[in-house]
Simulated scan of single mutants.
Amino acid sequence: MTTTEITLGASLDKSTHTTPGEPLIFRPDLQVKLGVCSETMRRWMKAGTLPPPDVAMSRKKQGWKLSTLAAAGIRI
């Protein structure tokens, strides 16, 4: 395996599976729209109430496709 393959494999995340132009909402914006704090978001994610993020660039930089939230019954 070459260095390039290792680097690409390591950086592969769900963000490569988003459809171009599909709306995303990032964690701080979702918190405001839902009227909850960061701790509530963490608890909901742990409990499965909130689906896993579609894009996870870091622990704090996470985003969801609006279609993912709608499929989980979350209307914003």
Rank of each mutant, 00 (worst) to 15 (best):
P53F: 07
W64T: 08
H17T: 13
T2W: 03
T16V: 15
P52H: 11
R42A: 12
R75V: 13
K60I: 06
A70R: 08
L34S: 09
E22V: 10
L8Y: 02
D29M: 06
V32G: 05
K46P: 00
P53Q: 04
K14L: 07
G35Y: 00
L30D: 05
R42L: 01
K60W: 06
K46Q: 07
A47I: 03
W44G: 01
I76N: 05
R75E: 13
S15P: 05
F26C: 07
D29Y: 01
S11E: 14
P28M: 13
A71V: 03
A70H: 07
L69V: 04
M41G: 01
E22K: 03
R59I: 07
K46I: 07
R43M: 12
E22M: 08
I76W: 04
A70C: 01
P52L: 08
L69E: 01
E22F: 04
L50A: 08
L50T: 07
K14A: 15
G48I: 06
G9A: 14
V32D: 07
R43N: 03
K14C: 08
T19V: 10
F26G: 10
K60M: 09
M45Q: 09
I25Y: 06
T16D: 10
P23V: 14
L30P: 05
K65R: 15
T40G: 00
M41V: 15
S38M: 05
D54G: 10
I25P: 11
G48K: 02
V55N: 06
G21W: 12
T40N: 08
K61W: 07
L34W: 11
G48D: 07
G73Y: 10
Q31M: 14
S38N: 12
S15D: 14
S67V: 07
S38H: 09
L66P: 02
S15Q: 14
A56T: 12
A71Q: 10
T16H: 12
R43F: 06
K33A: 12
M45K: 03
R27N: 14
R43T: 11
L34C: 08
T49M: 00
G21S: 14
T16M: 09
E39L: 05
R43H: 04
T2G: 00
T40P: 00
D13Y: 03
P20A: 15
F26Y: 15
